[in-house]
Each structure stands twice: as C-alpha cells, then as structure tokens.
C-alpha cells in the first residue's frame, strides 16, 4: 500500500530481548482505514500495539507515521507524534471526573481550543456529556471505553490504536462503540484495532491482519477470511480447528 499513513516494518518486540513475543510483524494502515488485528490468544496482538505505543521494548524493525520514524519516541510523546493508544483495561483515571479525564487528553491543545474540542467529544459521545462531573470509575464499561477513546482523540492523533475495546461489553454496546469508530475513521483517522471478538471486528474493519505466534499469517479483506476454510474454522468457530 503506497499511501500508508502508518507503516510497521519487521517489528520485533517483547518484555525481554531474549524472548520476543512479536517476531518481525509488518502492518500498514491508510488514512481513514480500520485495520483489525486478529489471532488466537498469545499471538502477540496486544504486545504489538503496546510496542507501537512505546510501552514494550522494540528490539528490531521500525514504526513509521506519515513517513517519520517514531519507533524510539517515548510513550508520553507518542500522542504528540500523532499516535494515540487506548489500553484494554484500566484505560480511564477512575478517581478523576469524566471532564478531568478529557482535560488530560486536551492538555497539549492551546487553552482556547480545549473547551470547543471537548464539546466535540461530548457531541460524539452524548452519554459522557451527562456524566461530566462523575468520577470515571463509576461509569459503565461501554462509557469507560468511550471516555478512553474520547480522551485519546483530544490529542488529535492521526492513528488510533485500540486494544480489545469490546472486552466485557454487551453486543449492543459493542455495536454502538464500533459505530463511533466508523465516524472517527471517516474523519481521516487510521484505526488499528486488536480484537478477540472476531465477528464484531469483521463487521467494522476495512482490512484484517491475522497474527499467529507473533508472525503475520494473513492480510486482506475481511470477506476473504470467510473464504479461507482453515482461518474461518479457527476464527469464526465453524469447527474446532487447530491454530492455522
């Protein structure tokens, strides 16, 4: 893909250099594209996005955003470099109010821009607008995910990484959250989505990347997944297949 906004090239990463979990993974995402990263448990999906976000040491390879190498950028400077990350769990500051969480996301904006940008997030996630003063720890699971996404969006990222945003949410809330992701991607943000909920991910993704044992196994359109009997059996649960 020549017009890739995000380009991950042969990335090796893990908590200990001697035991990499991500073994030379490559991945691309274009502006406005939603890429779902799928794979069985232990495939290295979460480690991959954490490494891209600067939270897990990278031993080789690189991450490029809009042509700029951001592999060695510290985690706290990633958002300013254009890459936002929403962790799977503990992704809001539970003791801070919803509004304070958003203000933290907006800290890099000029003071005059903060209120209008936060108003846009409240407009996008109407549920949050009614809960501004509530401690974020008292929100429902879906509202927390929306707050975490909203906080990351206030950093005006070009690329948004989400680690299993549907975990623990009801199908209705997942559908609502993924509809929001569609709106966000339509604004030009590239979204890389790690998911265990394969059916939901296939419904929202423009393209999928399948990882197995920390390596690329398949890359292509979601519809093609169903046409590959081995992958379909494994990921869509048609039969109890062995990992492909």
């Amino acid at each position: 893909m020549s017009d890739a906004l995000l380009r991950v090239e042969e990335l090796w990463a893990g908590y200990a250099p001697s035991a990499p979990i991500v073994n030379g993974v490559s991945l691309q995402a274009a502006r406005g594209e939603i890429v779902a990263v799928l794979g069985p448990n232990g495939a290295g999906k979460s480690t991959l996005v954490k490494a891209m976000a600067g939270l897990v040491p990278v031993s080789a390879g690189r991450v490029q955003l809009a042509g700029k190498n951001i592999t060695a950028v510290p985690a706290h400077a990633m958002l300013a470099s254009g890459l936002g990350f929403v962790p799977q769990t503990e992704n809001v500051f539970a003791t801070l109010s919803v509004h304070d969480n958003l203000l933290i996301g907006a800290q890099a904006l000029a003071r005059a821009q903060r209120a209008p940008q936060i108003a846009k997030i409240y407009a996008l996630f109407a549920d949050l607008a009614r809960q501004g003063l509530l401690p974020a720890g008292r929100l429902s699971g879906g509202q927390r995910q929306m707050l975490a996404v909203g906080r990351a969006l206030l950093g005006e990222p070009q690329v948004l990484l989400l680690d299993e945003p549907s975990a623990g949410l009801s199908p209705k809330v997942v559908a609502e959250l993924f509809a929001h992701l569609r709106v966000i991607s339509a604004s030009g943000v590239a979204i890389v989505l790690v998911e265990q909920n394969v059916r939901a991910a296939l419904g929202v993704a423009d393209r999928i990347e399948v990882l197995v044992e920390g390596r690329n196994r398949y890359s292509g359109a979601p519809s093609a997944l169903a046409e590959d009997p081995t992958l379909a059996a494994f990921f869509l649960g048609a039969t109890r297949a062995a990992p492909p």
Binding site: A53, L55, A75, F93, I104
Partner: peptide
C-alpha cells in the same frame, strides 16, 4: 490533574501524553 493521574495509574498517564 497530571499529578493525580500519575498517582492513580502511571502507565496510563504516559499513554495519555503526561
């Protein structure tokens, strides 16, 4: 606000740009 955020969850604070 950043101090309170770091006190609660330093890893998330890093991700949030602090």
């Amino acid at each position: 606000r950043a101090m309170r955020a770091v006190g609660e969850n330093p890893a998330l604070a890093r991700v949030a740009g602090i």
